[in-house]
């Protein structure tokens, strides 16, 4: 089985071998510091000895304190940043680039305000020069899944915050990436709107089963959406617990008030508290 090591700034550049086929991406012993100089005092260690195995078709949520280094981990997984030590290896049958859909935390700054909703979603397909007929099918399907069809011809600045989030997600998934990365996409929204978007995202995900890493600072969101919740420590980020979420693919908001939900949520919160004092 061929696997590929991520060894440069962007994810097209993967090489190497790895024996496990069900895993899309595996990060081992990742460490990353920022700052100048060679002394440890002048460097800020953001990630330390971080390991994660991403199984194909699973949704992993990452939950940790603010500023613990979650975004840095995502950028390393996406190949935007190179780790100081450790490696990110990819399991794949070919040497093609790992296609990644990335919804950034400041997603409003990544949408294109001079384009309509439809044209924003079309953007990645234009980049990869997808045939126009095929392109329209894909865009329409994604807009239907996220219930954006009625807003297709609006400019993104005419949309509410929640709809903008959905456009960013629809755009990041329209080219069917192998890995979907979301960095706190619903963090700026109020609780009831967030819950509606969790449901919509979960519906979409249950249809697509795209391998996903979803970073959140909301424990309910992390447990409701994830198949696994990775709990991270305070900076430097390392894995404190890897909590299996025992719910099926189809989830409704009633789940949020179930005993099983509270039990999983408590496991996550216990690990979170442990991580804060490590």
């Amino acid at each position: 089985m061929n696997c590929f090591t991520m060894n440069s700034a962007f994810p097209g550049q993967l090489s190497g071998t790895h024996p496990r086929s069900s895993c899309l991406l595996e990060a081992t012993g990742i460490a990353k510091s920022f700052g100048s100089g060679t002394s440890s005092a002048s460097k800020l260690e953001v990630v330390s000895d971080f390991s994660l195995r991403l199984e194909t078709g699973k949704l992993v949520t990452m939950f940790g304190p603010n500023g613990c280094g979650k975004s840095t981990i995502l950028n390393i997984l996406a190949g935007i940043l190179t780790p100081d030590s450790g490696e990110v290896v990819r399991s794949s049958g070919n040497a093609s680039r790992l296609s990644i859909g990335y919804v950034f935390q400041n997603h409003a700054d990544t949408l294109l305000p001079w384009r309509t909703v439809r044209d924003n979603i079309s953007f990645p397909l234009e980049i990869c020069r997808s045939p126009v007929g095929n392109r329209n099918d894909r865009i329409n399907r994604r807009m239907d899944q996220f219930r954006l069809a009625e807003h297709a011809d609006k400019y993104v600045y005419e949309l509410s915050g929640g709809l903008k989030q959905l456009v960013a997600i629809a755009r990041a998934t329209v080219y069917d990436p192998e890995l979907l990365i979301l960095d706190e996409p619903f963090s700026a929204l109020d609780y009831s709107l967030s819950r509606m978007l969790w449901l919509r995202f979960r519906e979409f995900w249950a249809n697509q089963h795209v391998t996903t890493v979803f970073v959140s600072h909301n424990v309910d969101e992390a447990v409701f959406l994830g198949d696994r919740v990775i709990v991270l420590s305070s900076r430097p980020a390392r894995v404190v617990a890897d909590v299996e979420v025992p719910f099926g693919a189809d989830r409704s908001l009633q789940l949020l008030s179930s005993t099983d939900f509270f039990s999983t949520r408590n496991q996550v919160l216990d690990a979170f508290e442990r991580g804060r004092v490590i």
Partner: peptide, 9 residues
């Protein structure tokens, strides 16, 4: 915006 487009390839 540029970073996002780079990630898309």
């Amino acid at each position: 915006r540029i970073l996002c487009a780079k990630v898309m390839g």
